[in-house]
Amino acid sequence: MKKIDIACIIDDDPIFVFSAKKIMQMSNMCNGFLVFHNGHEALSNLKAIISKDSQSLPDVILLDLNMPIMDGWEFLEEFIKIPTQKEIIIYIVTSSVDPQDVIKARSYDKVSNYIIKPISMESLKSLMISDIQETEVSSKS
């Protein structure tokens, strides 16, 4: 399994961030982390990265929905407008079980999956494996 270079976590809950990082570190999934506490922060920073060096964009983004200032949906809206070369796997990770959110998530095809908190190591692993393989395939073709 190819290691993810950078994983990005956009969530306002520090405990979750901590836990998530811990899980990923423990499973040796990625090299580095980018953490943003709300959509606005994430967007501006990512935009900056893109303009500077798109290679430094994260491979995976774990996006929370309920965030202050700019929530997950708003971020998503803006983010997908930005043209990038890099294929980024975006997971929406949220505690919302609202079916409407699920449906909405599906409407964005950049969103690879909708994960309900809490996350477990196994589930994350299995997801990532399959999705990363997919991107490998698609990038090679």
């Binding site: 809950d13 405990i15 979750f16 901590f18 836990s19 998530a20 899980i23 309920n66 505690s95 919302s96 079980v97 609202d98 908190k117 809490p118 996350i119 477990s120």
Partner: peptide, 13 residues
């Protein structure tokens, strides 16, 4: 939702 978050966190931790 919030309860879930916290409960989730708890579980994760």
């Amino acid at each position: 939702h919030n309860l879930r978050s916290h409960s989730g966190n708890f579980e994760m931790l």
